[in-house]
Every structure is written in structure tokens, then in C-alpha cells.
């Protein structure tokens, strides 16, 4: 296990509800205001958390996953107001976070989302195993629930029947529905869910890319949260990487 990186208040803004400033080499001073959006609870019955692009990389089995204690956990999106006027006219999702506990975090490290049986490659301290995003969306879901509840892709096209079915309950429609969570975030029940098994989605910041999955830790070493860092806040998370 790699060493824990300290949390810098101006570099780590997941779950922040405040303004933050920093200097950018190209753009000068950046000033964003952050707020969080409650996306409901994710039922992680198996504790096998899948961080993914739900429209492109989510599969029936063998998804990359991260182990967390089984349970129902709140999911929150951290939204950055990136407009010059700071009037909410232009917002981007900065993080999607699974909140495991409210104990204050003292450090963070990259988590390696891997397929079962894989081992993490050797990585320098500023390298990470990311999740690829190709449809501008990230999500959290339980690996076991996907395998159990999603229809067999060999006989049922997920995209045609679930994602973009054209109905009001299609995943796309739910993503665009601003009356539920907000446009761009959705808490979607898996097909045939009997126990509230669900999938929580959010747009991925500026769009596609490879995004890091980060774990935050309490002083006693317990995992307090799993966060997809959507690279809206500069990726140089440590001053020494600048």
C-alpha cells in the first residue's frame, strides 16, 4: 500500500461547499465556487463498488471494482461553478463521491479499480490506474447487482432497451430530468430491482478522459470515501507536483 498523501485544503475539493482559488500557469488566478448535490444512497449489497462509464464500459461481469464494506452509502456530486461571474451560469461536475463515513479524512491515495484477479501495475507516485470515460458520464454501481439484475446483453441490447429507449424512464431521460436531482445527475433503479438496487450517475466534468479514483482515509486508517476526480480542479493535487 502506497503512503498516504496529506489533504491540502486548496487542492482537495471533493464535498467542498465553498469558494476556492488557485493559480494556473496558463490562465492566472482561477476562482471556482463548489457545492454538493445529494444523489441519494447507493445500495452496495456486495461491497464490490464499480466506478465506470455506465454507457460505454459497464459490462455484465468482470467490471473493474473497488472493495468497500457492504452497506447503503450516500453519493454526492461536487459541482464547480466555473463561470467568470460566479453566478451559477456555467457549472461542471468536479467529483462524484461515495461517502462511507463522516469521520474527517486526514489523507488520500489513488485507488486502483481492477477486474477481479488482476493486480495493480507498478506506479510512480503521480501515476494512477484510471477509469476510461467515453460518453461523458461516470457512475457507481454494485458489481453483484449488475450481474444479477441487468438483462443478458447477448439477448437484450442495453443501449436500446435501457439507456436510450426513448421513454421517460430511459437512463438518458433521467439524466436530463432536472426535476429529480439536477440535470446531469441521476439515481436510477436497476431493472427488476426488488431491494432498491440502483445505479448513480453524473456527467463527467469537461467530458471524456481517464479519471482517477481516489480513496480518503481517517486518522485510524479507515476508508471514509471513494471519489472519482473529474479533473475540473487541476490534476496537480500536491503542491510539489506543480
Amino acid at each position: 500500500m502506497t503512503t498516504l498523501n496529506p489533504i491540502h485544503a486548496d487542492r482537495w475539493l471533493a464535498l467542498a461547499n465553498r469558494s476556492a482559488q488557485w493559480q494556473d500557469e496558463e490562465e492566472g488566478e482561477i476562482n471556482y465556487r463548489f457545492h454538493t448535490v445529494d444523489c441519494g444512497e447507493l445500495w452496495l449489497k456486495s461491497g464490490r463498488l464499480v466506478p465506470c462509464d455506465p454507457f460505454v464500459t459497464l459490462a455484465h461481469a468482470d467490471n473493474v471494482e473497488i472493495a468497500v464494506p457492504p452497506g447503503r452509502y450516500p453519493v454526492r456530486a461536487t459541482i464547480a461553478d466555473v463561470s467568470d461571474e460566479q453566478d451559477g451560469s456555467h457549472e461542471r461536475e468536479a467529483y462524484l463521491s461515495l461517502v462511507l463515513s463522516d469521520v474527517p479524512a486526514v489523507g488520500w491515495r489513488f485507488l486502483a479499480p481492477l477486474q477481479p484477479g488482476d493486480t495493480a501495475p507498478e506506479a510512480e507516485e503521480d501515476e494512477f490506474v484510471g477509469i476510461p470515460v467515453d460518453a461523458g458520464t461516470v457512475g457507481f454501481v454494485d458489481a453483484d447487482a449488475v450481474a444479477r439484475l441487468m438483462p443478458d446483453p447477448a439477448s437484450t441490447d442495453w443501449y436500446e432497451t435501457l439507456v436510450d429507449s426513448g421513454g421517460d424512464d430511459s437512463w438518458f431521460a433521467q439524466m436530463d430530468d432536472e426535476t429529480r436531482l439536477r440535470a446531469g445527475c441521476a439515481n436510477i433503479a436497476l431493472p427488476g430491482a426488488s431491494d432498491g438496487e440502483n445505479l448513480i450517475l453524473a456527467h463527467s466534468g469537461w467530458g471524456d478522459g481517464i479519471y482517477a479514483v481516489i480513496g480518503t482515509y481517517a486518522a485510524d486508517g479507515a476508508l471514509t470515501g471513494v471519489h472519482i476526480d473529474l479533473a475540473v480542479v487541476p490534476a496537480a493535487l500536491l503542491p510539489e507536483w506543480d
Binding site: 470515460v133 461523458g136 469537461w206 467530458g207 471524456d208 478522459g209 481517464i210 479533473a231
Partner: peptide
Amino acid sequence: MREHGLDASSAS
């Protein structure tokens, strides 16, 4: 593009 509210990710 970002200044004008358009998607422009690092991957792109």
C-alpha cells in the same frame, strides 16, 4: 471552448 460552456476534456 470551455470558456464558452462547451465540452473540451483533457482526453479530447
